[in-house]
Structures are given as C-alpha cells and as structure tokens.
Write a protein that binds this DNA or RNA. Structure first.
Lengths: 369, 369
DNA sequence: GAAAGACCCGAAACCGGTTTCGGCAATAGA
DNA sequence: TCTATTGCCGAAACCGGTTTCGGGTCTTTC
C-alpha cells in the first residue's frame, strides 16, 4: 500500500465533529437546505429556518471555515506581515495594535493570520506565500512606504489590502491614517504662540510616507505662522534614540540654533535629552521639544515628553474593519479614513527662556568646557 | 433567484488560480496522480514525478491550503491566544516571542493564527471558537497556570497543544520551559557567596506555575547554602513596578531586613529602586537585587539590573517546533524541553556593605526624616 | 510458456461545505 | 376550472484537493 511522506495523526479520543449532514439527517432535510437556511437565503420558510437554527445550536454545529472556503473562496481571515527588526520602531505599539486588529476581527467572526519578517525581501516573500496558499483574504500593510512594493504586488494579484498610512499611487488603495501633518503643523503653531521663532525639525526617513507627510506639516506650520523656511533647521533623519541625539547635536551646533525642535517620532525625541543636558540646556525651558507617537517611554523621561499621541488600538480596529469591508466588495475609494492625533501637553515645551544667540553661546561654552 | 446575505466579491482582474487539474491536464495525467506525485507516494515512477514537479513549478501551482485541509484535516497553522492586558506582563517579550514562533512556523511551511484576549474568560471563548472552526491544528499556551483551564479544554477536545511553562497535571502535556528554579537557586548561592545571610524573595503570583517554581528554587538555594528559611523574608506577590515597590518597602521595614532580595520578575525588581533610594540605600551596594526575565528596561535603570535573561525568540521557535511535531503525531512525553536562563551580572548586586541591623537603622532614620 | 508479482497509473469516491436547477404543492389570477 | 405564479425544498453538481481501489503492462520465476 502506498505510504505518504508525513506521519500519522495525533490527538486523543477526539469525538467526531458534527457536520452539516448530521444536522440535515437529524431534521430529515438535505444538507443543501440546511446550508441555505443557515446562510440567510430567502427561499427557506421561516419555520424551517428556525428548526435548523435551533438544531444546529443544540447539536453544537459549527461549520469548518476551510470547508466553506473551498467553495466561497474566503477563509475569513485578515493577514498581517510585520517587519519587526526595523528601528525597533513599533515595538511599544505592537501590543495595542494587535489587540485592535484581533478584537475587530473576532467581533466580525474573522481571525487573523500573521507572520513576522526581518527585511523587505522577507516581507515580500512571506506575503507571496500567504497569497499563494490563500491563508488570508486580504492584508493590512503597516508602515507605508512612498513606493510600496507590497501594495504593488497585492494590486497586481488582485488581493484586497488596506494601508496604514498613505502612499504615492493612491488608485485602488484603501487606507487608514492619522493626520500627522496636522499634528506637526499644530506643534509649530503652539511653539510660535509661545514665542519661539527658530523652530527646528527632525524627520524620520524619506522612504516612509509618514516622514514626508510630517515634514510637509512642519513646513505648513511655518507658513501659517509667517516664519521663513530655513533648510538648516531641518536635521538629519532620525528614527532611533541615537540618531535623534546626533541630529540634536548638529542642530544645536548651528550658528543660529533653534530654541525649539519638532521631532517626527518620539524615539528620536528622547534622544534629544542627553545632548541638551550636556550643553547645559534644560528641556522644556531652554529648549522646547514636541514630538509625535505617544510611546510609553515618553512618560518616563524627565521632563515628560510633550507629544501627539496615537491610539494604536483604535487604528488596529479600524484597519481590520476597513479591510473586511474591502474584501466583501466595497470600493477602495469609500474606505479611506483619517483621524487626528491627540496632543499630550507635558513638560518638554514652554516659553523660550533663551534667545537663539544665547543658546549658541551656551552650547559653545559647554563644548569648550 | 435566491440571494445570500453577504455582498459580492471584491478584487480586480484576479487571474484565475492554477489548480491541480490544470497541471494534470497539461501533462495528460489525472489529478489523483499529480497529487500523489507531489506528496511523495511510492507508487509513482521517478520520471513521472519529475515531470509533475517541473510542470507544477513552471505553471506556478501552489495547492490551496484549505482545500487540502478538508481531506487531510490539517490547515498547517499553529494557534496562539495572547492574553495581553494582564500586568502588562509580556509586553517587552512580545516581539521576540512572535518572531520566534513565526519564523519556525514559516520554516516548516506553516503559518500562525493568533488572537488576543483581555481576560481568562475571553481567552477560553476565543480558544473554543478557534477550535470549533478549526482555524489552527494546535495551540501554544503561554503563561501556564498551576491549574490551566486552557489545557483542560484542549485535552478534552483532543486538540494538540504545547505549554510554555509547566503545569500541575503533566499527563498528555508537551512543554517548553526555562529552568527558572535553577536560576533562583543560583541567585541565592551567588548572594550567599558574596556574604549575604538575610536574603529576601518576592514572588509573582501563586496562580502561575512559574512563580511557585521560582519560589521553590529560592528555597532550594537557601538549603544548599545552609541558610534557614524565614517566611518573613518572603514578600507579597508582585508582578508590576508598583507592587514590587510595595513589597520592597515591607521587607525593608522588617525588624531584621534582608541585605539582598531576589525577585521573581524584573518588572517588580525595578520597583525596588525607588523605595531603596528613599531609604537611603544604594542598590548594588547597601541592598543587592537579583531578578529574572531580562527585559530591556532592566538595562535602563541605574545601576543596571542583575538578572537572569531568557531568550524569548528561541522559546517561540522551540514551542512552534514542538507543537508541529505534536500535531504530526509524536507522543507528548517525548516533547518536553527545558533550557537554562543566562545570568546577566550587572550592577544591582554585590558584597553587602551593611549588616541587616545597619539596614534597619538606616531605614528607620530615613522614615523619621 | 504460463502464472505470479512488481510497477504504475486511471477512475472514482471522498472531505464538508455551497450553489444551481428543477419540480412539486399551494395559491393567485382569469 | 384551468393556468400562471409563487414558495419551498430535494437532488445533484461543484469547489480543489486527497486517498482508495482495481486493473493493465512489464518482469520475473519455475
């Protein structure tokens, strides 16, 4: 007798699962009728439908999702490929984000299939595999790139997806995003209102859409306040604490340093504390900092980081809901949603205690020392 | 015509998927033959097998996992229900843990189906749903309880599972665990070797197996060092920073306070820093602390926390591998594995600078002050 | 040279659902 | 009273795979 490659089945005294045929037999109906009754077809009498519903409930019948999938083409699962190593970026958010997705999926009687990748190529490979085996009906794409290979691939394959963030080629894309450009603009206006006139900006990384968008918000803020744009005041890319510190040092070493800095991400902003301290500048007093993300670590530094906080759990929920609607046939254009970030006014910003020239002097003397 | 409840399908110009029948037709074979060739049956000639393999590759054929599942009963997916809100416990580990599981699963050509729950009941409900719909072939159960309802349920259902941790009823259980009892024992011996004679212990929570086991390790360490067990030196349960601080305060207020404290978890140990500071005790000098987990925050406090670090990514990998072997039929008794934790000797422990009586005096004067 | 195996593969059943199609009975319309 | 609808359900095809069964070649063996 032929022998397959794999071993035999595990499991204890697994009592046989109740199938749709069992229910049908119990009621003296055919499985087709039971199926239609359960799925809300109109050509089933109300009385029969009730009998079926009750019997199914009583017998503990639950359709096998993969058995349904073979005919319907839907496994009722949202897919997610997380690229985790990058900058340790969303680490603090991960828990909330996953909870949001999972809860929204569960509420709709869906599940979530996920994989983690360690590079862009890895992400692409895993995505292709999940699509090939149809392990999920659609995907949530976190951390959108300006040019997003994942979106291109899924579009070409005709597989539904939702972006967390926006992208350059909008056609056919559904998305959820936080209006971080508005937050950055507001940050500039808040600082301007407090008296700041030299306001710096530290971007994230030009390949991510969010970074470009936030910088646009920063520049829009300058325009609204009637402040000139000075490219010297835009620091180098920073997504980590170390690079944030580096960017801060460079900005403070300018001939006319900023009295306030707006950061693209909290992680980089936290990196500003040490160089500021070394330069003899008290954050929130001599140097104001406003950032974006709302990571928990921002509440542990002293003074606490003033930042725009994002509700990642809510984001996960909305993304899952949008994706499910997308999979069920709604047009992507109707599935675009943005929310505002919430400003957490804490201790890292305030009225400028020093002028730009004073800052420059203090930095210079600290360096000499 | 009858109309189902749901809407119509989404998706663009999805090119039709190539099925096993397509491959069969291309080669002039039947789909049964193609299937057997692909699955390594012995009754297929080598030449035919090669033809099939090449054609399948060339045509880009990938079997639909849920179509296979309907006959084989296996969806090739490992399940995971994470209970996330509790004590914020595994938050720092989450990323590594998920990566480990996902990578091991991917390597075996499996995927991972996950859900998050917010309470024990929620966990149980989600688990039951995933089992009922057979969304996964087996489950990884993190954070084992002494009496684990999840394990009971899965055992009764005959669904394979692997524990991360151990449990009271071992029969039929496969597991992976870190020998935290050995770590706790070693912590005591290290402290004893440095000269400490009053060594306290702060447990986690008695309902978790790991906490009970670690306390056993602590007591074993005392015995090996010839130190008496003093129940006063066992503080109250602590899994959070706040409760860790509370437990520390209580221990330091004893008539004969400890000169060193062993903590069940890092998070609680970090809570020791503030009350020690307020009592005028320098951690690592006047009061030694050794803990367990190896969370990143332990490297941010000053002095850095001496702790036993666990490789959560490796744990995830092994758990997934064990589960897959379990699902494929191996006996649970052969699927039990433990590893040792790695000691990170950092700054929070050292030779006792003060005697127990000195500590008591200093605490008292600090309180009066 | 005929019987007995080995070697291969086709045919068909099967898994657990969904969906189409057709027909019977009851009702409505003429 | 006869026909046209309508309501409701059975029968059967179907989805994309896997697995069983049986039989036709081709060797081997006596």
């Amino acid at each position: 007798m032929a022998q397959p490659a794999a071993g035999k089945t595990a499991g204890g005294p697994r009592r046989p699962r109740v199938t749709i045929s069992d229910v049908a037999q119990e009621l003296g109906l055919t499985k087709g009728t039971v199926s239609r009754a359960l799925n809300g077809y109109a050509d089933i009498s109300e009385s029969t439908r009730n009998r079926v519903l009750h019997a199914a409930e009583a017998m503990g019948y639950r359709p096998l999702s993969h058995a349904q999938a073979i005919r319907t083409g839907k496994v009722r699962s949202v897919g997610l490929v997380l690229q985790l190593n990058q900058h340790d970026g969303h680490r603090p958010f991960l828990q909330d984000f996953l909870s949001g997705i999972s809860e929204a999926a569960s509420a709709a009687d869906w599940t979530m299939t996920m994989a983690t990748a360690s590079s862009d190529e890895d992400t692409q490979r895993l995505l292709a595999k999940l699509v090939a085996e149809h392990k999920a009906d659609g995907f949530i794409l976190p951390r959108t790139y300006m040019v997003d290979a994942r979106a291109e691939f899924l579009r070409a394959e005709g597989v539904p997806f939702v972006l967390f963030g926006r992208t350059r080629k909008e056609e056919g894309c559904a998305w959820f995003d936080v209006e971080s450009e508005a937050a950055m603009e507001e940050a500039v206006r808040i600082l301007h209102g407090l008296g700041h006139r030299r306001i710096g900006f530290v971007p994230g990384s030009r390949e991510y859409t969010f970074s470009v968008i936030r910088q646009e918000g920063y520049e829009a803020g300058l325009r609204r306040c009637g402040l000139p744009f000075d490219s010297d005041l835009v620091g180098r890319d920073a997504l980590s604490r170390a690079s944030g510190a580096e960017a801060t040092r460079a900005l403070l070493s300018l001939p006319e340093p900023p009295t306030a800095i707006v950061f693209c991400v909290d992680r980089a902003a936290i990196g500003a504390y040490e160089p500021a301290h070394l330069a003899g500048l008290a954050i929130g007093h001599d140097l104001s900092v406003i950032s974006y993300d709302g990571i928990p670590e921002g509440g542990l530094v002293s003074p606490k980081l003033s930042t725009f906080s994002v509700d990642m759990k809510h984001a996960g929920e909305r993304l899952a809901q949008l994706l499910i609607r997308r999979i069920e046939g709604e047009a992507p254009e109707t599935l675009r949603e943005t929310v505002r970030a919430r400003f957490l006014a804490r201790g890292s910003h305030g009225q400028p205690a020093l002028s730009s020239a004073d800052v420059a002097r203090r930095v210079k003397s600290a360096l000499n020392y």
